[in-house]
């Protein structure tokens, strides 16, 4: 028996919003520790890694490991049926071929349940080693979303260059070029609004705008975003979801031919 209850359905709605442009289907792996999802987009350029810890749920029970392959389009349709203030409970029997979503209004006057067929997905998993990155940049997630949106008007790629002076985001295309430089916040009063740069070695990497814009769909999950970079390895864009876990995106760089 698997059962996971969240007081606010909005978290699950936002998580789905944050992955559904990259993935059409994904496997939710549930065990004692919580719910995990790892999936690449069709082109294998980007990967989503989601963790929702058991202790972040209001109720969590998982007697046996459960693997639930879900069509994310169908799941999105179902979650649209939940009010933002509804509680949501996901339930599945052991070895079941369906999952049930139960939505309850705050006063318990409306209770709805939606059963969805599960899929048998045979998806590739990547083994991602623990990595020490040369640069980590933390900044307000809304600022990152704004930059990606602004720069993607000019070109298809963004060059991210991190040095001890700060971090620079650049692009160029038919109409011209654009650069945004961010320096570390001088005095940190409000941590959520700070730009914090840790750099062991300078790194410059190039990434496709389109994917960065997909990642920013997670903006409402977290006030801050962390970018981790090392030379010649994928970028990690992490949004910490308060009290429950994180969503991380990995993006393969563009390289000189």
């Amino acid at each position: 028996m698997f059962e996971a209850r969240l007081l606010k359905s909005s978290i699950l709605k936002k998580v789905l919003e944050a992955i559904k442009d990259l993935l059409t289907q994904a496997t939710f792996d549930c065990d004692d520790n919580g719910i995990q999802l790892q999936a690449m987009d069709n082109s294998h350029v980007a990967l989503v890694s989601l963790l929702l810890r058991a202790d972040g749920f209001d109720k969590y029970r998982c007697d046996r490991n459960v693997t639930m392959g879900m069509n994310l389009g169908s799941m999105t349709k179902i979650l649209k049926c939940a009010g933002d203030k509804d509680t949501v409970t996901m339930k599945a029997q052991d070895n079941a071929d369906t999952v049930t979503f139960v939505f309850e209004s705050p006063n318990q006057e409306k209770v709805s349940d939606y059963e969805m067929k599960l899929m048998n997905l045979d998806l590739e998993h990547l083994g991602i080693p623990e990595t020490e990155y040369s640069c980590t940049i933390r900044m307000p997630s809304a600022e990152f979303a704004r930059m990606c949106r602004d720069l993607s008007q000019f070109g298809e790629s963004i060059v991210i260059s991190c040095t001890k002076e700060g971090v620079k985001f650049s692009t160029s295309g038919d109409i011209g070029s654009a650069n945004i430089k961010l320096a570390q916040t001088a005095s940190i009063d409000k941590e959520d609004e700070a730009v914090i740069i840790e750099m062991d070695e300078p790194v410059t990497l190039t990434f496709a705008c389109q994917y960065l814009n997909y990642f920013t769909k997670a903006t409402s999950l977290s006030p801050q975003v962390q970018l981790s970079m090392s030379a010649d390895v994928p970028l990690v864009v992490e949004y910490r979801i308060p009290d429950i876990g994180h969503i991380r995106y990995y993006l393969a760089p563009k390289i000189e031919e």
Binding site: M40, A208, A252, K254, I255, E256
Partner: peptide
């Protein structure tokens, strides 16, 4: 510039 894929960097399990 050419786009790489993640399988260039990480092994599949």
């Amino acid at each position: 510039m050419s786009q790489t894929t993640l399988t260039k960097f990480y092994n599949t399990r």
